[in-house]
């Protein structure tokens, strides 16, 4: 990776880190923390869906695993919250690898892969809802004990910085993937799996690495969710709402780009808040906006917001070709 790759990430991270010094409103901080948690999970989706072209409709499976693993470890085994965070991330990678192994080995792709991930997430949800080990339907309540050692902070800004650090780390990870040999292979598999195979790419191995990474990052976001709200149940952790959010954000922001998930999550949640301000009495108005934006994004801005901006910039420069990473699904 070159300095040019890193500078935008560094600048953004520093600017975002300075925000709590300027904005003291808890409402805004709380909004940002939640949005960043979603964008972290969305970044996980993006690794598999954006770079690898494998659209998962069940990333809740990873999000929920992260949330449940850390909660169960803390509550049932007295494990420290930070260790729980690490183990939850590892568990996400494992679940990702297993789901990937089962479905990629059977050659599932496209709609079939989307459906199988959806079904896995549902199975997890039903199990978590029924088993007493996971607290059943009553869910799990992480004990409120505000100490940094417990990953609970008195000041919302601290948690914000923590989530921001993780988001920055995954931005770097994504940038690395983009520039690495692994990333090139992943994109090759996305564009044309058969051709990639013919060129000697071990497509199964590449996809498995991608889904394990993806699962780990999304599990981390689930873990942070549990740590921030201190309460989870099966419908929160494994519900389809999170699968949908994690997929919407990168697609709105720019699928297969480094910043897409963050841009998308901020846009969606921002729009949702605005919609609620203007038409708060109409139930579900923010979701109507979400759905509408999704359709419009697919129809008119196939590279998401970032792709759109890029195109506008290029048009301004009078360029014809574009060197963006906009996804083309040709050949799938």
């Amino acid at each position: 990776m070159t300095a040019r790759d890193l500078i935008p990430i560094a600048v953004l991270a520093v600017l975002a880190a300075l925000l709590p010094l300027v904005v003291t409103s808890s409402t805004v901080l709380n909004f940002l923390v939640f949005t960043l948690i979603v964008s972290l999970g969305a970044q996980g989706w993006n690794i598999l869906g954006g770079f690898g072209g494998q659209f998962s409709f069940g990333h809740a499976a990873f999000f929920g695993t992260g949330a449940y693993v850390t909660a169960i470890l803390q509550l049932r085994y007295g494990v420290n919250a930070w260790a729980g965070l690490a183990l939850a991330t590892a568990a996400g990678a494992l679940v990702g690898w297993v789901i990937g192994f089962l479905s990629f080995r059977s050659g599932l792709r496209g709609s079939y892969f989307a459906l199988v991930t959806l079904a896995f997430a549902e199975v997890f949800r039903i199990l978590a809802n029924a088993a007493s080990f996971t607290g059943g339907a009553a869910g799990l309540l992480i004990k409120l004990d505000v100490r940094p050692a417990n990953l609970q902070f008195d000041d919302r800004a601290v948690f914000y910085w923590l989530v921001l650090a993780f988001v920055t780390a995954t931005l770097l990870l994504t940038r690395w993937i983009q520039r690495s040999r692994f990333g090139a292979q992943l994109v090759a598999v996305r564009e044309n799996e058969d051709a990639a195979k013919a060129l000697g790419v071990d497509s199964l191995k590449v996809k498995l690495r991608a889904i394990a990474l993806s699962g780990a990052v999304t599990a981390l976001s689930g873990c942070l969710y549990a740590q921030y709200f201190l309460y989870i149940d099966a419908n929160i952790a494994y519900g389809s709402w999170i699968s949908v959010e994690l997929l919407l954000a990168p697609i709105i922001g720019g699928v297969g780009t480094v910043f897409g998930p963050v841009v998308g999550a901020l846009t969606l949640h921002g729009l949702g808040e605005v919609a609620k301000q203007f038409a708060g009495r109409i139930p579900g108005i923010d979701l109507i906006v979400f759905g509408g934006v999704l359709v419009l994004a697919v129809a008119f801005a196939r590279g998401g917001i970032l792709g759109l901006l890029e195109r506008l910039r290029d048009r301004g420069r009078g360029m014809v070709t574009r060197g963006t990473k906009e996804v083309s699904h040709a050949g799938r």
């Binding site: 759905g291 509408g292 697919v298 799938r332």
Partner: peptide, 27 residues
């Protein structure tokens, strides 16, 4: 028209439609 004849896009457009329809009914 919205999906430009691409499978992945169709998945997303119909997903978006379902979210819109469901919440319009809710409203």
């Amino acid at each position: 028209p919205a999906s430009h004849g691409d499978d992945g896009n169709i998945l997303l457009v119909t997903l978006g439609l379902s979210i819109v329809l469901e919440n319009v009914l809710l409203a």
